[in-house]
Design a protein around this nucleic acid. Structure first.
Lengths: 287, 287
DNA sequence: TCCTGTCATACCCGGTAGGTATCACGGAGG
DNA sequence: CCTCCGTGATACCTACCGGGTATGACAGGA
């Protein structure tokens, strides 16, 4: 029952994702033959066939799929351990954990809440230093898992809280942000169906991991682009109430009656035991 | 940013737990000098001091404590990956995940619920084989984390659900189980304070990881022992309602008015994606 | 049929994990 | 005060194995 070195996991993940030994080896910065050998060794040690080598390429067996998922979690846990240990050691006063906390927040998210949280926590007597780490749209979970962050502000239903401990902080409705001169901007309320079905205002498509979902709308990757496109009368967007804070004069916000409420949570890895984190959570839930 | 091999983690965990290089090396089945060297290398690679070598022994730095916690999680994830992959490969039909599910249940827990669950699930059209793994009092969480189990029946407030996904199955009150001939057995209801404060019936102490909590009561490690001691008029126990199923003639159950309700959950690792598991959960929530 | 793309095999080399012997040093005891 | 344990660190050696290059086996497509 030997224990599956992380090197082997990295190798397998590369092959399982590329489904091609040559490309996987290139990605790993090594030659193909030792990679083949390493995977064979891994299969022998596990006593399990992980890859089906057919003519023209490679495919995963059932066991391979399991290892792909479980191995990702294990690798994340290992790199998280390394990162958090490094951080803890950086400015370490002996015995205590008086270190910095890294807080991941969605880049374009509620400033007021974050502001209030940071101010309230800084006023605490034993406050640690908080580093705010801007994250992409949905990657706060990854950041918690792989140790880039210690705690995050997450937003249901966009993020999934699976695997984390969390506390609810705030619930808000959603609004449609329209060009002020568009006919629909005169409405008092709208529905999701109405907003999604305006021929001259296709919904914008956000960049996710470098790719864009299919659809007619313009491709954007930050909020300023979006604001501009709305101001130009080219698109419409759906946001939580707190987005009113950054509206331009050319924008109009109309409440959506049937959009699911957006709930903001503070979330952290379930096994965390840090005092600084506990203090931050206590502060957050008291807001 | 190299990635912290599990071998290094195992070594560090051993030293951090023993706080003694010699004993740690013995536990690892190796000599002491290479272990010292490996730890030094680890500290160099992380750029962090993990252990404080004082005269007369070793102690953990703050960073060392962090690595002790995070490393435990990472090692568990790695062994879980190995175990689940092995299981998936055992009787693997290509492509599907038609494998066995391992269900961890507290040994002395509600039979009826488990029985109903297993029967209902077996009647499903695409049911996988379920292996029931009896676990100790509180270790279902560990079993899920290190891959010995895929899914577990857990009981709040005894188990902690932190880090798992779960669904609530059943809520029950608690009862005191007394010797039938004891004066208190005549009562219609009792309180926790009354039960905990009977001089001639001290509460039994369960074995936890081989050790016993301090107190006056008898030391026990299984439910039969407990049943016998109660029948003999030597102790009293507090159990969920469903424990009535195994009462003896010499026992009397009295409801407790102020005991917290016991909630049974079905819980599984948050990142699980198995079809078989999804089916089991669906069956369980329909009961 | 040959060529091309793919993964496996054969073989070699160097780094390093592990072993043994020994050192450095602090504490307890005579 | 000196000595002797017990501790972790150092020095040095060996052998394994992780990685490289060259090449083979084999299937498809022109």
């Amino acid at each position: 029952m030997e224990a599956l070195e992380t090197r082997e996991l990295r190798y397998f993940m590369a092959v399982a994702e590329e489904l091609h030994f040559g490309r996987a080896a290139e990605r790993l910065g090594m030659a193909q033959p030792p990679l083949s050998r390493a995977i064979q060794q891994l299969e022998r040690r596990l006593g399990v066939r992980l890859l089906e080598r057919n003519r023209r390429g490679v495919s995963l067996t059932g066991a391979g799929e399991v290892l792909l998922h479980e191995g990702r979690a294990a690798l994340d846990a290992a790199t998280a351990a390394a990162r958090r240990t490094r951080r803890a050691g950086g400015a370490d006063s002996p015995g205590g954990s008086r270190n910095r906390l890294v807080l991941a927040v969605k880049a374009a998210a509620s400033h007021e809440l974050l502001q209030k949280l940071l101010e309230a926590y800084a006023a605490e007597p034993d406050a640690a230093e908080i580093e705010v780490l801007p994250s992409g749209m949905c990657e706060q979970g990854e950041m918690l898992r792989d140790g880039r962050a210690d705690v995050a502000l997450m937003h249901a239903p966009f993020n999934t809280l699976a695997g984390f401990d969390s506390e609810e902080l705030l619930t808000e409705g959603q609004i449609a942000i329209l060009p002020a001169r568009h006919p629909l901007a005169a409405r008092k309320t709208l529905t999701l169906a109405e907003v999604g079905d305006v021929p001259d205002l296709p919904l914008a498509r956000w960049s996710r991991h470098g790719a864009y979902p299919p659809g007619p709308g313009p491709e954007i990757h930050d909020q300023t682009q979006l604001a501009q496109l709305i101001a130009l009368g080219r698109t419409v967007a759906v946001f939580p109430d707190s987005a009113r804070a950054w509206l331009w004069a050319e924008h109009t916000a109309v409440p959506l009656t049937d959009a699911p409420p957006v709930v903001t949570y503070i979330a952290w890895p379930a096994h965390s035991r840090s005092l600084a984190l506990a203090g931050l959570i206590r502060t957050a839930t008291r807001l």
